Computed example of a mutant assay.
Amino acid sequence: MEILASRMLLRPADYQRSLAFYRDEIGLAIARDYGAGTVFYAGQSLIELASHGGPDACGTMWLQVRDVHATQDELTGRGVPIAREARREPWGLHEMHVSDPDGVTLIFVQVPEDHPLRRDTRD
C-alpha cells in the first residue's frame, strides 16, 4: 500500500467557533475553503474542518514547532488557554498542550538538537 497524502478530518460541534480557533487563535493558514469546510496547512500535513456531518471530535494532533516556549507565548498573547505549559518530557521532547473548542488535544512539540529524532540512523 502506498499512501499519497493524509490529513486529519474534524467535524466540530460548532464549525464557526472551531474555524475562528484554528484560523485566528492558533493562526493556521488556509489551504482551501470548499464551502462545506476549510482545510488548513499544518506543517507537512493538513487539518480539515468539515461543517457537514455530525460532531465527531476526538483524538490528538502532534504539531512540531521550532520553539515551544515562543509558541506558548504567542498563543497566550492571542488569549488561547494553555491546557498544560511547556516542559521537557522524560522522553526528551519539549511539549505544550492546548485543547480546541471540542476537546481535541493539540500537542505542540519541540525536538531538541540532542534528541534521537534528529539523528541520522543510516549506516
Results as ranks from 00 to 15, higher is better:
Ala5Ser: 13
Gln16Arg: 14
Ile30Cys: 05
Leu28Lys: 04
Arg11Pro: 00
Ala29Val: 05
Leu9Trp: 11
Asp33Ala: 03
Arg17Leu: 12
Tyr22Asp: 05
Asp24Cys: 00
Gly35Gln: 05
Ser6Met: 09
Asp33His: 02
Arg32Pro: 04
Ile30His: 06
Ser6Phe: 10
Arg11His: 09
Ala36Arg: 11
Leu9Val: 15
Pro12Met: 13
Tyr15Ile: 01
Arg23Trp: 01
Tyr15Thr: 01
Thr38Val: 07
Tyr15Val: 00
Leu28Ile: 01
Gly35Ala: 06
Thr38Tyr: 01
Gly27Ala: 02
Gln16Tyr: 11
Asp24Arg: 01
Leu19Tyr: 12
Leu28Gln: 02
Leu19Asp: 09
Leu4Lys: 13
Leu10Ile: 14
Pro12Cys: 12
Tyr34Cys: 06
Asp33Lys: 01
Ser18Ala: 14
Tyr15Cys: 05
Leu10Tyr: 11
Leu4Thr: 14
Leu9Lys: 15
Ile26Trp: 01
Pro12Asp: 11
Leu10Trp: 10
Gly35Phe: 06
Arg32Asn: 08
Gly35Glu: 08
Thr38Asn: 05
Leu10Ala: 14
Ile30Val: 10
Gln16Leu: 15
Tyr34Asp: 11
Ile26Phe: 02
Ala36Asn: 09
Ala20Phe: 03
Met8Trp: 07
Arg32Phe: 07
Thr38Glu: 04
Ile3Tyr: 12
Ala20Val: 08
Ala29Gln: 06
Ser18Gly: 08
Asp14Arg: 14
Ser6Tyr: 08
Leu28Ala: 03
Arg17Val: 13
Leu9His: 15
Asp33Asn: 04
Arg17Lys: 15
Ala13Tyr: 10
Met8Ile: 13
Asp24Val: 00
Ser6Arg: 08
Gly37Val: 00
Tyr22Val: 00
Gly35His: 05
Ala13Arg: 15
Phe21Trp: 03
Glu25Leu: 10
Met8Gly: 12
Ala31Leu: 02
Arg23Gln: 05
Ile26Val: 07
Arg23Gly: 00
Gly37His: 08
Gly35Asp: 07
Ile30Thr: 08
Met8Asp: 10
Arg7Ser: 13
Tyr15Lys: 09
Ala13Met: 12
Leu4Trp: 12
Ala5Cys: 09
Ser18Gln: 10
Thr38Arg: 06
Ile26Ser: 02
Ala13Asn: 15
Ala20Ile: 02
Ala20Tyr: 05
Ala29Met: 06
Asp33Gln: 02
Ala36Tyr: 07
Arg11Gly: 00
Phe21Arg: 00
Asp33Val: 00
Met8Arg: 14
Gln16Cys: 10
Gly37Lys: 11
Pro12Val: 06
Gly35Cys: 04
Asp14Gly: 13
Asp33Tyr: 00
Asp33Thr: 00
Arg7His: 15
Leu19Lys: 14
